[in-house]
Design a protein around this nucleic acid. Structure first.
Lengths: 305, 305
DNA sequence: TCTGATCAATCGTAAAATTCGATTAATCTA
DNA sequence: TAGATTAATCGAATTTTACGATTGATCAGA
């Protein structure tokens, strides 16, 4: 049987490699600097190789140290997931849960669903974080988030998802615009328009373009907004038309504005919203129930004005 | 920061779940029964849930216990790989290495390549194990094997491979057979023959059939042999023809027998032999060098008689 | 129904480890 | 050069870990 390092030692290493500083690492690990120093040395002795380069006032991990630290971090995440699995087996809907949401969903889903979630799962301590898809997924994989609400599909493996809503696109145009009179707008209708979209990085941009069967490459930065509210203002000022997700309309994003909205028609004129979590997570039952609750909460409502 | 179990506790749990017996598990862990018992209880207390059902003379893991044990085993494997990575970074070609080989390669590759491997890597302690592909892969993923020599492709992910040889198929037929006079045999030539193959489970069976563009379903069990030597004997007795890999011929499998051999022609009349290892392994450099050495050793030789 | 055997839990004690605070040695800054 | 910062080292206190012996429960066979 092989001699293994302890998770404690590995935690010390990860802390030091992340901070390049013994004192700060020790503080983060809630131990004294001498304890952490000794732990690192134990690990280096066990592995028979230097993991850190101590040179003139700065600590730098060796290439091997970086490699070992990465493996160590994965092990620590796995150990946490193991504990989560035990906890969730007893009480799936209890304890802290770090939930990420993309910016084109968060402001509309959170106010709408949170009260019901709080009522249904009073023991669940929900910590919310809003960011773009790629960053949320990075945090998910780093174990900093437990689960994420985002638009499907997205480019990552090692993740499981459940769909919680289909969010129809609506075309929003200024008063008097040629599309206003129609019952719906087709993808073909959109091609000649000045289409206002969010800046790069927002998945809504790509999904909106896809729903219209359009390419995004040629669109200039001048037509990019930083939030859906900004886009609506630009439409109201006659700069063009935009596509908004139905949940934004249902949240009243057009209230008090002189613009018209009509549903997008076509093959699949919506984006799919889903809940995602690490394949290795220990709380899948928690996420399934959370997804079911979100799905119920996001059921389509009477069509928005 | 979450309180984590120790790897020691997890190792105890895995040992008990695998054996359903405290005493035997303690022996396997090289600790006393009381120590192991205490360790398990610590773990159950930490996780706040029973992992084992102690009932009348027998120990059975609870569903949660099984789940936790599976996760624990993965963590332990990961920790071993971490140690391997450190060791291999210092000396890639040193230490114990558990190598699996499929039965249609082992008897021909091992005698041929071992002496050179021993000479090239004297510090490498090679432990060999011969079994069929699926079992080798199971053992590879369980961490019981470090690397495996098998035929490509095979149905598994989480594994990296390098090709080490292309092993041509030869048609072996009894003296006076209609094919004997030809320079080579095509896939079409094989269709009407009584083709003798290994029994199910040997990947050589499937790859040989594929090289002839034939289906395996209709072949009866009566035409199945348990080893390549058996097949050759059956051919010598006039029961049909067979396909042998070139490395078997080079090893002299036909010596002293009244049979003829001619190369198979066609699109890809060979099987590909490769070295495989866990994607998460810490000894990739070791495997790359081993694959290179095996490849050099298995270079085609002057065509066999 | 007893008896001996088996098995996991428990207990008390010895050994080993972990931790901390204080100190040291080295390096950098003012 | 004095002071500040940082990681390593040391010694002592504490905690953890391990062991052997024992207990209590269950089972098999007489």
């Amino acid at each position: 049987m092989k001699v293994l390092p302890t998770l404690r030692q590995l935690r010390y290493l990860v802390a030091v490699v992340e901070r390049c500083h013994f004192g700060q690492a020790a503080e983060a690990c809630l131990v004294s600097q001498s304890t952490l120093s000794a732990g690192i040395q134990e690990l280096e002795e066990l592995l028979g190789a230097p993991l850190l380069e101590r040179t003139k006032r700065s600590v730098v991990p060796t290439p091997l140290g970086r490699e070992i630290a990465a493996r160590a971090k994965a092990l620590l995440t796995g150990a946490e997931e193991l504990v989560d699995a035990a906890q969730a087996a007893k009480e799936p809907m209890a304890g802290p849960l770090h939930l990420g949401v993309i910016p084109t969903v968060g402001p509309f889903l959170v106010p709408r669903a949170m009260p019901a979630l709080r009522a249904a799962f009073p023991a669940l301590k929900l910590y919310l974080r809003e960011d773009q898809t790629v960053r949320l997924l990075a945090q998910l994989n780093a174990g900093e988030l437990d689960t994420v609400v985002l638009a499907l599909p997205f480019p990552t493996e090692d993740v499981e998802t459940l769909e919680i809503a289909r969010d129809r696109f609506w075309v929003v145009c200024p008063p008097g615009h040629r599309l206003c009179s129609a019952q719906a707008a087709s993808a073909a209708d959109m091609a000649p328009e000045d289409l206002l979209l969010l800046e790069d990085g927002h998945c809504l941009r790509d999904h909106a373009l896809a729903a219209c069967a359009l390419e995004g490459g040629r669109r200039s930065a001048a037509f990019q907004g930083t939030s859906l509210h900004t886009l609506v203002q630009m439409v109201a000022n006659g700069l063009g038309v935009t596509l908004l997700p139905e949940m934004a309309l249902e949240a009243g994003i057009l209230r008090g504005l002189e613009v018209s909205a009509l549903p997008l028609s076509g093959e699949a004129p919506w984006r799919r919203i889903g809940l995602a979590w690490r394949r290795s997570s220990g709380r899948k039952e928690t996420f399934r129930r959370l997804a079911a609750a979100l799905q119920a909460e996001m059921e389509p409502r009477p069509p928005p004005g």
